[in-house]
Design a protein around this nucleic acid. Structure first.
Lengths: 130, 130
DNA sequence: ATCGTTGCAAACTCTTTGCAGGATT
DNA sequence: AATCCTGCAAAGAGTTTGCAACGAT
């Protein structure tokens, strides 16, 4: 038998600053937003470190990616229930919505098999809708 | 009063090859797919020309952009009714679906205003689902 | 002392732009 | 002939990778 060595859990100041940025923001963040948020805790943080730690947190299962149409990827704390997102047309911030749309049946071409869906609302967030 | 000069409608061989690629494919195409499809009509076509002509066709209203989560933009012939898209998980091709989902009411946070939505189905297309 | 992480810079990919030559009217 | 378009190559923007120095154990 082979034993799979438990990965040592390494928490550098940089990685902690990045996790804190997600907890404080409480919404999905882009790499640039992570850099800006985490630099308030650790000003010398570099962008390569942000990209590497995002990937590391995704691999650990702490983060998960949220792909957005026509914009850079966002990442959110993993483990939440199925939900969708709202993007502000002006500031481009992404927000979490509760729940899913009511059951829907979309017709797909013959021979196609559906395995999942995505849904986005667009508009103005409270900060931009004054 | 100023008169707005009517743009001369210029149709080069390259632009015609690009339009033909869309008509033949009958689905939204990425810039790379346009290049590949149009090069079958005009083998020396360059990618800068593809990008410029896509932009030109969008400006003319012949094409419209279809942004996709986590993938390069697609373009489809403009003027169709409101509809959504299906993306194949394996080959990444985008397909047009008919119609929209039945009426839905998603709760948004207070102070937010909704102006639009997007919806995507994912799965396997008939070519990849054998 | 060892081994993983950081931060800079270079490499990469996708897209846009500059420019000389070519095509169209 | 004048003007617009093309294709190459260089420039940008966002992301990834190489590497020497740093940090933690």
């Amino acid at each position: 038998m082979f034993s799979i060595p438990m990965e040592r859990q390494i928490n550098t100041r940089q990685k902690t600053a990045i996790r804190d940025a997600f907890v404080e923001a409480d919404r999905p963040l882009s790499p640039d937003e992570v850099l800006a948020g985490a630099q308030r805790h650790h000003p010398t943080l570099g962008k390569a470190t942000v990209y590497r730690n995002i990937q590391s947190l995704v691999d650990e299962g702490w983060l998960q990616a949220v792909e957005v149409p026509g914009d850079s990827p966002r990442y959110e704390v993993a483990g939440k229930e199925h939900h969708h997102h709202f993007q502000c047309n002006r500031c481009k911030k992404l927000y979490e919505l509760q729940g899913c749309i009511p059951s829907f049946k979309m017709k797909v071409p013959r021979g196609f098999r559906t395995t999942g869906h995505e849904f986005f609302l667009y508009g103005l967030c409270s900060q931009c809708n004054h």
